[in-house]
């Protein structure tokens, strides 16, 4: 069996170029980044959005009806009533700070 002679690199390059032409791929001998993979990849957003099951809440239903019908949200009304009762007893949320010095964080001990 005769020993194979080493193939010159120019011949190999020509072969690769010809192969690219035949199979319609881009000839890129230096492996330069073309960014094509960002265009080729499928979009992931559409399937991402469908992960959680769609949930219809009372507030969402009222928004969809555009004021034509309205369901009374008892839990939300109870919550608002509780907040009002707390405010009357002076237990409401603190006022928003106008300046940085007013903020509660500025008086914090380290």
């Amino acid at each position: 069996m005769a020993a194979l002679a080493p193939v010159p690199s120019s011949r190999l390059a020509a072969l690769t170029r010809l192969r690219c032409a035949v199979f319609q791929t881009s000839y890129n001998p230096t492996s330069a980044r073309t960014g094509a993979k960002y265009l080729r990849a499928r979009l992931r957003g559409p399937s991402m959005v469908e992960y959680y099951p769609k949930e219809l809440t009372v507030a969402k239903f009222n928004r969809l009806c555009l004021g034509q019908w309205k369901i009374v949200d008892t839990t939300e009304e109870t919550r608002l009533a509780d907040v009002e009762a707390k405010k009357k007893r002076g237990k409401g949320a603190p006022k928003k700070a106008k300046t940085k010095g007013d903020s509660r964080r500025s008086h914090r001990k380290r």
Binding site: G35, Y38, L39, A41, L43
Partner: peptide, 10 residues
């Protein structure tokens, strides 16, 4: 994706 394509294209 469009910006990524431009930014990564040598």
């Amino acid at each position: 994706r469009a910006y990524l394509y431009v930014a990564r294209n040598q």
